[in-house]
Design a protein around this nucleic acid. Structure first.
Lengths: 98, 98
DNA sequence: ACTCTATTTCGATATTTAGCTAAATACAAA
DNA sequence: TTTGTATTTAGCTAAATATCGAAATAGAGT
């Protein structure tokens, strides 16, 4: 729980999660969306990975990250419960029409 | 949002919030529930206060802290929304019968 | 075997954090 | 006004974090 909240305490990392909610993305594509250096972004990815919030697969030269929605959801669920709230899924974001 | 998640990233501070969900408590009573020194607890209170999660009134010698439930709730609500969840209040804890 | 691209690791520095003890403050009470 | 109780501030250390540029690694393509 601490690792997850720590990961969420940085706005860059929260935005990464929101971006990954739309679709999986490569480290480079994600990094391009922010002002900081790639090594810094790589460190942010590591924090998110260690919290279990994202996972990656290698694809050719690229590393593709994707959100581990269930981990985020269970953490929020547990926390919400402790404060007398209930959490439920409303919708997934639109996927691009094909 | 960052201040709130930062505040929540420490287990001591999360437990303080849970205790204050039951009832307002003095700094000393709260501190007595943990192993760490009172100055350390005071620093934790400061972090929670700066995040807006708790507030205090002076009462004689004591400082009574209470949870700012609405701040916590709005933060969670906003975050939940960004991930397609909905949050709603289920119950308040039992107050002592009189 | 090179070379290019993508990403991470390394090494450095600066800042923040959590913890402590000792000292200061605030207020009550004697 | 001195004493006692509650809490915070000050000053410190050790550990963790965020950031960078440079170097290392991994794969693909030539």
């Amino acid at each position: 729980m601490s690792l997850i909240f720590k990961a969420l305490s940085d706005p860059t990392r929260r935005r990464v999660l929101e971006m990954l909610r739309q679709r999986p993305m490569s480290a480079g594509d994600l990094a391009a969306a922010f002002q900081v250096s790639k090594p810094t972004m790589s460190a942010h990815f590591a924090v998110l990975r260690e919290a279990g919030l994202i996972a990656s697969e290698k694809q050719a030269q690229s590393v593709i990250y994707h959100l581990q929605m269930s981990v985020l959801e269970e953490a929020m669920l547990g926390f919400a419960q402790a404060f007398g709230w209930q959490l439920h899924t409303v919708s997934k974001p639109d996927s691009s029409p094909d």
